[in-house]
Design a protein around this nucleic acid. Structure first.
Length: 885
RNA sequence: GCCCGGGUGGUGAAACUGGUAGACACAAGGGACUUAAAAUCCCUCUCCAGCAAUGGAAUACGGGUUCGAUUCCCGUCCCGGGCACCA
């Protein structure tokens, strides 16, 4: 054994060994429990950043731990390879998106391998490859035919100068990021996944996911936003229900407090009124300025204008003015809301601004309404000034009002969802082409299966706008139905579509005749999914939706003449079924979810004017005399917030130099030790030295142990002396703790700390006699095995030194010896009035009464009782005694 | 603005189910070894008072529940994530 810890030698050797022996190749095996461990695949942005190191180390620790526990482990890796940054890079550097993407994949694959992940690389996939997105297009055609995809108009950000659609991210302070032009809203046709058809199931099945963090389930519940309310119709003419304005409200009890209704700028009533009133038309035009992002809509100044139109209250027939308001969204609900300033904060503010009446109709259950209202009273309560409904509770009134409205045919109870259908059309190039042909005679026709995939042309010149929209060789085609001239759809799909089913494709990435085969139902669901908390809603909801689609929609491939593939491990069964593909047999994709906290770093930028910023990497700045400056020119930079490491803010820290200098094990150890996985982590490389020092110490300890002359082996014939018994108890307590930390608590920092403590105790153990050596051997083996999921390279070398001939890849996790945990005395804390005053040692089996007596007799307690009588004694078994005086 | 988290020494953090606040590290200071340096090893290290024994205070801030609160409840401030076209 080498006396020195040399990661630069042992790490490449270990990685080469894993590759040569295909150590992490996963095959279906019915005889062992399976464990599918998946980390969210990376976008190939160019280089790994610290968030990746954190994510993939967590996944690798769990995968390796379960392998040691005897599971058949699958841990795959791939690339979320379509997306906007490739187009941005193409514009900036004049390279084709495909070339840029594949070059990044090659570089980052090397970096991932250098991290030493126990990944089955034979299953690697990239979503931009036709053999992947082909099946996405294929599923699209099936869903389209079944009505689960449909087309409708939707609002996008439009840059009037660049004449292009902008992502929300590309709109900065209301202006296009490149042109600086004021952004407008524009309606265009788009394809939508009917995710709302699954809203109820997506909501209710959250209750069947005990392995998900509560906060993620809460976020998804709120996002789906199921609410029970009443649809209310306001007649456009007095005493006539033939033409109505529909609104939806969860607060029908406040109906008598309505003092106006507000409609969206695009609402037909607004359009109608604007025809004769130029100032209103101008206002509606102004409403169309700005981005479509909800955060922008919600924070902008609430503005409105009277249309001059009135509708009539469905119960009182009083006229109610109709306003156009910029905060009402056409795409949500009916595009109109009833406004009750007395009982809604937003309406209260709006009414104050435009001098609209405020009419309170609900008071607190146990108080008079504090009139006049100084703020909206938004809680439920008791109705007043509400006709026949006065005196009823809010809950009761909602029911009765709904019933009366229903009898008048002016309303009905309705359940609504905040969740909207998922618009997936993108007016971009670098994405999966939507497999639709537009025919002037047949309408929208899906591309037949034998013509799939619709391949995205790669040899393109990128400037502003999608090149395939200007490429007749791509879009000119014939109609699959009538054979006449037709045009291909040139929009591509949202990249969230690819990431919604990749986890399933990993189970059978080599199948070129079907989207999925039996192997999917062997491996799925994913047992452990690991990824950033930023994906808590969108990605995870879409993936859950897709899993249900793949469960419900028939997936067989009927390509004539497609070659049969043999899935049976024994090679015996190659009937027709194996060629057909399978439906998924489960309803949820991810059994356990670990949401990693973000790795965040400071951001720095320089203002380029018109809202444009040049983001500067933290590595390029330094502090000089208290001012943050760019190293290159010494001029100051602006310090932005601390945000998640991202390409767009250029605040990612490249782990490569860390790995080059200290090795992958140090990087992995340091990352796991810095904070628990779910907590966000502000990046700082202070402490890397300490992690490296620990590994050197571990190496040295094993080296000194195995190189020491060995006395005759101890066979455990005598009882250990007390000191060794104490140490052995500590050892087995540590094994129990580390197992629990990794398996249940998912807290690796404390698992590492427990091993550090154990090593500190071990280094204090003197002597080279047979029992001491045997115990040292036992402890070192346990420590090396317990650390091996975190630092696999060094532990591979160390276990081979400790157990000649042993190999880490088939080593088992150490077992707790329960008999070593027994002890006969414990220490209890003594409190007087809740303050710590001393401690006593008592026998393990001592009764509460004995303990109480011992505590009261203790001088530490006596001193602080100051002669006062005992009011109460609280004995917490195994912990403490609190004397209350 | 709305939804979801978080806030503990100089720093990263620990305290798992309401029961010893600061484990384990980093940094810093002191010492040993060395011709010297690096490496390594040992010691100190929340704040205040005190020579010390010890006492008091302290888990963002203000309140509450409890014998006992970092932990539960209410309010405030600050930081992070998401808000449907970044991924």
């Amino acid at each position: 054994m080498d006396a020195q810890y040399r990661p630069e030698i042992i790490e490449p050797e270990a990685q080469q060994h894993w590759e040569d022996t295909q150590s992490f190749r996963a095959t279906e095996d019915a005889s062992r429990p399976k464990y599918y461990c998946l980390s969210m695949f990376p976008y190939p942005s160019g280089k790994l950043h610290m968030g990746h190191v954190r994510n993939y180390t967590i996944g690798d620790v769990l995968a390796r731990y379960h392998r040691m526990k005897g599971y058949n482990v699958l841990q795959p890796m791939g690339w979320d390879a379509f997306g906007l940054p490739a187009e941005n890079a193409a514009l900036a550097n004049d390279v084709a998106p495909a070339g840029w993407t594949y070059a990044n994949i090659d570089y980052m694959r090397g970096q991932l391998k250098r991290l030493g992940l126990a990944v089955d690389w034979s299953r690697e996939l990239a979503t931009c490859a036709p053999n992947y997105y082909r099946w996405e297009q294929w599923l699209f055609t099936r869903l389209f035919e079944r009505g689960l995809i449909y087309k409708k108009m939707a609002t996008v950000n439009w840059d009037p100068v660049d004449r292009t659609v902008l992502a929300n991210e590309q709109v900065i302070e209301g202006r296009g990021w490149r042109s600086g032009a004021l952004v407008e809203k524009r309606d265009i046709p788009m394809y939508f996944f009917r995710i709302t058809a699954y809203a109820d199931e997506l909501l209710s099945e959250l209750d069947n996911l005990p392995g998900w963090p509560e906060r993620v389930k809460t976020m998804q519940r709120n996002w789906i936003g199921k609410s029970f309310g009443v649809e209310i119709h306001f007649p456009l003419r007095k005493f006539s229900g033939s033409e109505v304005l529909k609104v939806f409200t969860t607060r029908a009890d406040t109906l008598f407090g309505v003092t106006y209704v507000a409609v969206a700028a695009e609402h037909p009533l607004a359009t109608q009124a604007a025809a004769t009133r130029p100032e209103l038309a101008a206002f509606i035009g102004a409403c169309k300025q700005g981005s479509v992002a909800e955060a922008d809509m919600a924070t902008m100044e609430k503005k409105g204008m009277d249309t001059g139109l009135v509708v009539y209250h469905p119960l009182t027939n009083e006229p109610v003015p109709v306003f156009v308001a910029n905060y009402v969204l056409m795409g949500y609900g009916e595009g109109a809301v009833m406004a009750v300033p007395a009982h809604d904060e937003r309406d209260f503010a709006f009414a104050g601004k435009y001098g609209l009446p405020i009419r309170p109709v609900v008071r607190p259950v146990d108080a008079e309404p504090g009139l006049p209202l100084t703020a909206a009273y938004v809680e439920p309560g008791i109705l007043f000034d509400s006709g026949d409904f006065s005196g009823r509770t809010s809950q009761d009134a909602i029911e009765k009002i709904a019933l009366v409205l229903q009898n008048l045919a002016l309303g009905k109870k309705r359940t609504t969802y905040r969740l909207r259908d998922w618009g997936i059309s993108r007016q971009r190039y670098w994405g999966c082409p939507i497999p639709i042909v537009h025919c002037s005679r047949c309408g929208d026709v899906t591309v037949p299966e034998d013509q799939l995939p619709v391949v995205l042309p790669l040899d393109v010149k990128i400037d502003i706008g999608s090149p395939i929209k200007k490429m007749p060789s791509f879009y000119e085609t014939t109609c699959p139905t009538c054979g006449g001239p037709a045009e291909r759809e040139t929009d591509t799909m949202d990249t969230f579509v690819e990431s919604s089913w990749y986890y399933a494709r990993y189970t059978c990435p080599d199948n070129d005749t079907a989207m999925l085969d039996e192997r999917a139902n062997y491996w799925l669901p994913v047992d452990q999914y690991i990824g950033g908390i930023e994906h808590a809603i969108l990605h995870l909801l879409y993936a859950r939706f897709f899993h249900k689609l793949m469960r419900d929609v028939d997936l067989p491939s009927r390509s004539p003449g497609s070659p049969k593939i043999d899935l049976a491990p024994t090679g015996g069964r190659s009937d027709q079924k194996s060629e057909l593909g399978v439906k998924l047999s489960t309803s949820e994709p991810f059994t356990h979810l670990l949401t990693q906290g973000m790795v965040i770093a400071d951001t720095y930028y320089r203002d380029l004017g018109e809202g444009r910023k040049q983001w500067i990497n933290p590595a390029e700045v330094e502090e000089r005399e208290g001012i943050t400056v760019l190293k290159a020119d010494g001029q100051p930079v602006i310090v932005g917030g601390t945000e998640k490491m991202s390409k767009s803010k250029n605040n990612g820290v490249d782990p490569q130099s860390l790995i080059d200098q200290y090795g992958a094990d140090t990087a992995r150890l340091f990352m796991m030790f810095a904070a628990p996985p779910e907590q966000s982590l502000e990046w700082s490389d202070a402490g890397v030295e300490g992690a490296n020092r620990f590994l050197r110490r571990l190496w040295k300890m094993v080296y000194e142990h195995v190189e020491a002359p060995s006395p005759s082996p101890w066979l455990g014939e005598k009882e250990l002396p007390a000191q060794l018994r104490d140490f052995r108890r500590q050892l087995h307590q540590a094994i129990a703790k580390v197992s629990d930390d990794i398996e249940r608590r998912r807290q690796f920092n404390t698992a590492i700390a427990a091993n550090m403590e154990l090593m500190n105790a071990l280094s204090r153990l003197e002597g080279e006699d047979a029992p001491t050596r045997a115990l040292k051997q036992e402890a070192l083996e346990a420590i090396v095995l317990m650390l091996s999921p975190i630092v696999p390279h060094i532990c591979g070398s160390l276990i081979a030194a400790l157990r000649p001939g042993a190999n880490l890849t088939d080593a088992a996790w150490p077992l707790v010896d329960e008999s070593a945990l027994l002890r006969d005395e414990i220490e209890l804390m003594l409190q007087v009035n809740g303050k710590l005053r001393g401690k006593i040692r008592v026998a393990v089996e001592a009764s509460s009464a004995t303990i109480e007596q011992a505590a009261l007799a203790s001088p530490d307690v006596q001193k602080f009782m100051e002669g006062r009588p005992v009011r109460k004694v609280v004995v917490v078994p195994g912990r403490l005694i609190n004397v209350v005086v």
